[in-house]
Amino acid sequence: MIADVYIELKEGVVDPEGEATKKALRLLGFRKVKNVSTRKVFRIEIDAKSKEEAEKEIKEMCEKLLANPVIQNYRIVWIE
């Protein structure tokens, strides 16, 4: 099974990388750009009996390492 785990900043947390990218895009002439935000994606291949079991495990990974709950949320998207 393969899952994409998206690590995103929580609402209200400043995203300096996104802001700087937006500024650079505007400078390049992309005036329609309203907002840019960044996220990190981990593609995880995992052996598990069921999707539920895998999802439980991935949630634990997020809580133990991949996300800092003070500033980040995580979201799992199944690829296969």
Partner: peptide
């Protein structure tokens, strides 16, 4: 901070289960 050792409000449990603060990207990027 990631260990949950800081801010470390609980004397009996010096490492919190989850981080209670973060050191985020500098505002200046």
């Amino acid at each position: 901070a990631e260990l949950g050792a800081l801010p470390g409000f609980d004397e009996d449990k010096p490492l919190a289960d989850k981080p209670e603060m973060a050191l985020g990207i500098n505002e200046s990027n």
